[in-house]
């Protein structure tokens, strides 16, 4: 897992719960990296899971909630860094639809070792987008957070939710809908 997730997660915990909690989280978690993260490198996913669990226990918030909040938190960082990618998009649905076909390709140019989830586009209308999110890791809510923040970024009202009727083994069906 790319290092920026870890550096941003630590920043996220620091901003939401303070540096003391960050310190406590790293000191008590016995991480192989000892909490030293560089955005260039990759680190085991387990370390993120360990830190997330710690925060859940500490704050009594659900992992899903935390991940979604984390997603929203990361969005400005991502677009700030990679504005040359984002500026091509004029609306949130095009951007989300372009994750797989465009954004991930740009990511791969920088980090060829990046392990990226799949976003398979099922349906795209002017105000609605249906896709299958398929990842080795359970970061669905992280993705939802990112998408919700995308809507906010484009100053659009809308919803993102999981289609509970979707029962396939691989992936989760995500629906993004914009209010008229």
């Amino acid at each position: 897992m790319k290092g920026f997730i870890f550096t941003e997660f630590i920043r996220f915990v620091e901003e939401s719960h303070g540096l003391a909690i960050v310190d406590e989280m790293i000191e008590s978690s016995n991480l192989p990296s000892r909490g030293v993260y560089s955005a260039f490198n990759s680190y085991p996913f387990d370390e993120l899971a360990t830190m997330l669990t710690f925060i859940c226990n500490k704050t009594k918030d659900s992992a899903e909630f935390l991940l979604e909040e984390f997603g929203k938190f990361v969005f400005p960082y991502l677009i700030g860094k990679h504005s040359y990618i984002i500026k091509e998009y004029k609306n949130p649905l095009d951007l989300i639809a372009g994750i797989e076909s465009h954004i991930h390709i740009e990511v791969k140019k920088l980090y060829e070792d990046a392990e990226l989830p799949e976003f398979r586009l099922v349906e795209k209308q002017d105000n609605k987008l249906v896709m299958i999110y398929d990842s080795k890791r359970g970061l669905t809510y992280f993705a939802i957070g990112l998408m919700k923040q995308t809507l906010t970024h484009f100053e659009v009202n809308g919803k993102v939710w999981i289609d509970s009727k979707y029962k396939e083994n691989t992936g989760v069906k995500l629906i993004v809908e914009i209010n008229e």
């Binding site: 550096t7 790293i26 260039f40």
Partner: peptide, 23 residues
């Protein structure tokens, strides 16, 4: 304790910077 926390955090950042420079 606050100083310790900051020291530790600073230490982590420096190390991370070294790693990044190496990369």
């Amino acid at each position: 304790s606050s100083v310790d926390i900051l020291k530790r955090a600073l230490e982590r950042e420096r190390k991370a910077k070294l790693i990044a420079e190496d990369f």
